[in-house]
Amino acid sequence: MLSINDLHSQIDDKKILNGLSLEVNKGEVHAIMGPNGSGKSTLANVLAGRDGYDVTGGSVTYEGQDLLEMSPEERAWAGIFLAFQYPVEIPGVNNIYLLKAGVNAIRKSRGETELDAVEFLALVREKIKLVKMKEDFMSRGVNEGFSGGEKKRNEIFQMAVLEPKLAILDETDSGLDIDALKIVADGVNHLRNEERSIVLVTHYQRLLNYIVPDFVHVLANGRIIKSGGSELALQLEEQGYEQVMREAEAA
């Protein structure tokens, strides 16, 4: 479904991704771990099509298409969803108004009929239960005045409504209290199925106890230096990144 091959990317003259390769198949859950500043969010942003990143080499294919040629909205229409590490506030724009515009733009791009207000409301009422948020969050401004944890939950709520094919969750577990972490993890697990692929960026093994990944990758200095099963996360927790990075260098 997603095939990243020898990807190089930089901001201004600063090289961030240095030959990153990753293969994600339908229905798989991949966890990406790695030190601060190693390029995890950069990868997520490049996949979602954010401006400002120069791709200087390599390729990304998504469902047979050249992903890098597509605009951010086209990628969203094609089923890519990014849960942001730092969700932005958009004052005055109603949370579900944005979501409705998104859902209908996506439906339209697929030749489906747009949802009317009643249908849409029924949909979001259903989905908001998944993240146990109060309904009044729906009508507040997008992330406006939300606490850090509420913003993260809102991202998962949006994912539930948009039903992406490929969801990239950038540190959605950071800043969540213990109960919220469980709620978010349950939400993600609920959305996990054979059709949907998930890329989880996280710093904490704890999340992976709840959402058990099929693969764990270590990203350091802009490339994947080690991959393994869910046991790799435990090893990292014990040994830290240093050891893995040394091993990788030696190899």
Binding site: A76, I90, L98, A101, V103, G141
Partner: peptide, 27 residues
């Protein structure tokens, strides 16, 4: 904000609609 625009576009909203939305929110 570029980040506001990108957020909206990532949710599937075209750039033009995103600008409208943000401006309307401001007003």
């Amino acid at each position: 904000g570029d980040d506001q625009l990108f957020y909206c576009r990532q949710r599937g909203v075209s750039e033009e609609d995103a600008v409208n939305m943000i401006v309307n929110g401001f007003c």
